[in-house]
């Protein structure tokens, strides 16, 4: 009997990619529920009832103070036990754009722990000094333990849309560890796979990092938006290149749902 996969798409004041993120999960066979964080905090909803936690893009709490910070703190102070347990239960967490910023600032990435999680890396203001929406190329790291990217080969293209997406590790040691454990899931590359000068690295990220996972590979955070490349008409050049069977973001959601079906 096939396991029915349940995804919780976490909303907070200022989340704004929640609907399309839920749509992405539903289109690959998961149930997806939009849940306001207040309901989790008040105990009306329990994380334990879900298999996948998705923190969508947006500007939670206006990104006041810094991007994703206030929601990250809310998770740490109000929901740390639930989140920690959720991860220990072998379930999946995906943070996109603002969701990635939340994961990083809560400590969940790259360590995988939120309780006493120390922030080891950050996503800070783009070198260009402004918000930018543009399509980029990503090279997947075949050595990564990330469960969301299995079967994805070579380069994919997705859009980024952010003002604070520049990856910076706290030290060279942190970066080396991420590299050695395969925790860098996607790197920005040029259209032909070459080293990405701006705008191909759209924000000045160190080591061209676009996405990270935790050591288990079950928590993925990424600045680019896979939920904006589901339909073939999302592709910026579909009127030139024709309509593909599906968008290149779909695999990330499908992998997550299939992982849950197989392992949970």
């Amino acid at each position: 009997m096939a396991h029915s996969v349940r995804t919780i798409v976490l909303r907070a004041a200022g989340s704004n990619c929640d609907v399309e993120t839920a749509f992405a999960f539903e289109s690959v066979g998961s149930k997806a529920e939009l849940v306001h964080i207040n309901r989790l905090v008040r105990g009306e909803v329990r994380l334990a009832d879900y298999d996948i936690l998705a923190i969508p893009g947006g500007f939670t709490y206006g990104d006041d103070i810094s991007a994703g910070k206030i929601l990250a703190n809310e998770l740490r102070y109000k929901l740390a036990d639930q989140v920690e347990q959720f991860h220990q239960d072998g379930k999946l967490i995906l943070g996109i754009c603002n969701g990635f910023q939340v994961l990083v600032k809560s400590g969940l990435l790259p360590s995988g722990h939120i309780r006493d999680g120390k922030q080891q890396v950050t996503l800070t203001a783009n070198d260009s000094g402004k918000f930018e929406d543009r399509w980029v190329y990503l090279e997947v790291n075949p050595e990564s333990p990330c469960v969301f990217t299995r079967g994805i080969e070579g380069r994919i293209t997705l859009p980024v849309a952010h003002a604070e997406g520049k990856f910076v590790p706290a030290s060279d040691g942190v970066l080396k560890e991420l590299q050695s454990k395969g925790q860098i899931v996607f790197r920005y590359v040029g259209p032909e796979g070459q080293f990405p000068a701006y705008p191909w690295n759209p924000n000045g990220s160190v080591d061209n990092v676009a996405a990270l996972c935790d050591p288990t590979g079950r928590i993925l955070g990424m600045m680019p938006h896979p939920e904006r490349h589901l339909d073939p008409t999302h592709h910026p050049r579909w009127t030139r290149e024709g309509l593909h069977a599906e968008g290149q973001g779909v695999a990330i959601f499908r992998n997550a749902v299939e992982y849950v079906r197989r392992h949970l």
């Binding site: 990619c17 918000f131 930018e132 929406d133 589901l230 999302h234």
Partner: peptide, 15 residues
């Protein structure tokens, strides 16, 4: 144009 998010809500067809 690039400073505006012109793709949020996931319905972009012709940018």
């Amino acid at each position: 144009i690039r400073q505006y998010d012109h793709e949020v809500q996931g319905g972009s067809v012709l940018k």
